[in-house]
Write a protein that binds this DNA or RNA. Structure first.
Lengths: 232, 232
DNA sequence: CGTCATGTTGAATCCAATCAAGGGTAGTGG
DNA sequence: CCACTACCCTTGATTGGATTCAACATGACG
């Protein structure tokens, strides 16, 4: 029923190439865009070329700049891989919310979860060391991908390049490369040809101080608990 | 009219002492708490004693943990000074939203602005140096206080101690102390007995790469523009 | 007057950035 | 098939910013 409602108002997905911006110049600020496939990111670029990736958008996430004044945008949204985006027109949103309390709740939860992820990102950059940050990001992405059914066991796609990781974790490519090698040497994870495998989940989580509570994902939560009861 | 509606459902403010937590054990997650006076912060504490302040809550800001599952809270909210908090019961919220589109919009804007501030915080921790971070925080707090009428010209209250600043900016007290002295030596600001004065707004903003656009505050925006047209 | 919280300073150490250079792989075009 | 390019990954040497540990100063307050 709710899915039917959704499909009714969903406009055909549009494709954005990797490295291009998902722009919405002058778009209705009430419209909602959802990533259907591929990875994107919110980022902020400085004049001197420095870039900070603010958050990573996976399939199922909303990618709206949430701006009320369109003349001054505080960040951009870029495609990390080829991305397909579905759009729900602004006028349809309010209507659908009224007709389905479940959808209303779902969008609400999405926003709250995104805010929680943003807070955790802040914590990472503020109080976690280089290795911890990288380990934490891997844990988070794997958990989120698992929740939307895009992971196969402890393996998941990982299209971020080392420069991307550097821009996300507030470091340089060179240093990302070294910490990555540390994690590999410690046999905690494997990262090759855009695929990540977590070799030792508990140890990686402990190192990263990763607690999936903030993701508010029942599935991921349960998965962690299940694993931890298997190997205590 | 809208103010009347608000006052009608506002419960009497309660007082929370400095350094105490603003806890809502088992509270209705739909309820809304607003800081009436004093400063508070969202923070995350690790087992090893490390603390990261995630955001600063000034008078007028909402201080809700926004949790749907109360058993697992991902962060806490603490009072930095003595704080008085007003509460709107959960059941009243939905009602009031229906009766006043302006209030509905206001709460929406509050949430979007908070998210934008959170993103900017992420950018600070990721890509700004120590001095830049401190300068940026001073600019932001001054702008936000100006917007709610709590600044007097370029002077505003600043109750954060150096350990607080360290926990907010991801550094140590010692280092905060030194960068603070650098800013004083450069005659950019004065900070004494819990009061901050910005001595050279444009230079400080330039150093911090501060662009008030993300705050989405018309007033602060205008103030900056006004100053910049006076002294180009 | 002593106590406690906050602010200040110095010296040694470490983590991460920077500079610089080399290697791998894929795509393109002659 | 081979040059040529672009992009990513890797490594070493060097520099600098930030932490740590430790001590001391200051100021508010009972």
């Amino acid at each position: 029923m709710d899915l039917y409602l959704l499909s009714e108002i969903l406009e055909p997905a549009r494709i954005v190439e990797a490295r291009a911006d998902i722009v919405e110049e002058g778009e209705d600020p009430r419209a909602v865009n959802v990533v259907v496939s591929g990875w994107a990111c919110r980022y902020r670029q400085f004049e001197d070329g420095q870039r900070q990736i603010i958050s990573i958008l996976l399939p199922g996430d909303c990618c709206d700049p949430h701006i009320f004044r369109l003349d001054r945008r505080d960040h951009a949204i870029g495609a990390l891989t080829q991305v397909s985006v579905a759009r729900i027109a602004g006028h349809a949103i309010a209507d659908v919310m009224n007709r389905s309390a479940a959808l209303d709740l779902a969008f609400h939860r999405e926003a709250l979860a995104a805010a929680a992820i943003q807070r955790e990102w802040t914590v990472s950059l503020g109080r976690r060391s280089g290795v911890e940050r990288l380990a934490h990001l891997c844990c988070e992405l794997h958990a989120r991908l698992t929740a939307v059914g895009l992971a196969e066991g402890m393996t998941c796609p990982m299209p971020l390049t080392q420069p991307d990781l550097a821009d996300a974790l507030g470091q340089t490519t060179v240093h990302i490369n070294r910490t990555l090698q540390d994690l590999r040497a410690a046999r905690l994870l494997a990262l090759k040809s855009r695929r990540l495998t977590i070799l030792h989940p508990e140890r990686l989580r402990r190192l990263a101080k990763f607690d999936p509570a903030y993701l508010h994902l029942r599935a991921a939560d349960d998965a962690v608990r299940r694993i931890e009861t298997i190997r205590p």
